[in-house]
């Protein structure tokens, strides 16, 4: 009884401390106790699969799909979309089958390369437009993108 109420208190304090952070997942283990914490901002909802797969088949669709995403991700949530400055093929890494430059949840600095767009064998880096955390990639590696298409959501 005593132990468990103390544990409960500890957990409460723990959650309170985490309240104002961005932590998405944390696992804390001690003998006899394992605490897992996941925290996800609930103010935006994203459906990545539909946006990515339908636009791959039909280049006329992506703009519409992304409008939907931006609507569910209001400006005041601190989300910014990094857009493509050229028409081409979007890649997450600079080499074929290489490691992605960044992953979702990575923290990035303004100007940091986060992906590339290739056109006519020329690779152009997509750079983070501000400091922040990669929330989500809106297009899959190898997918064609148009000018101004939203590629990555950043949270600041």
């Amino acid at each position: 009884m005593n132990n468990s109420s103390r544990d409960l208190n500890l957990i409460r304090q723990f959650v309170q401390t985490l309240k104002d952070t961005d932590i998405v997942e944390l696992v804390w283990e001690r003998p006899g106790i394992k605490l897992g914490v996941k925290k996800e901002s609930q103010d935006f909802v994203i459906q990545p699969a539909t946006a990515a797969s339908s636009s791959a088949k039909e280049p006329s669709k992506p703009s519409l799909e992304q409008e939907d995403v931006s609507k569910t991700a209001p400006q005041d949530s601190g989300l910014t979309a990094v857009k493509s400055t050229m028409v081409g093929i979007f890649y997450r890494s600079t080499e074929k089958d290489g490691n992605p430059l960044v992953k979702e949840r990575d923290l990035v600095k303004e100007g940091q390369p986060i992906a590339v767009v290739e056109a006519m064998k020329i690779f152009k880096e997509v750079r983070a437009t501000r400091d922040g955390k990669i929330v989500q990639f809106l297009v899959e590696s190898g997918q064609p993108v148009e000018y101004g298409q939203k590629l990555v959501l950043l949270k600041t």
């Binding site: 050229m86 081409g88 093929i89 148009e146």
Partner: peptide
């Protein structure tokens, strides 16, 4: 030109 050619290539 490069944007237009890229558009032709990806489509």
């Amino acid at each position: 030109i490069s944007q237009i050619i890229s558009a032709a290539e990806i489509t």
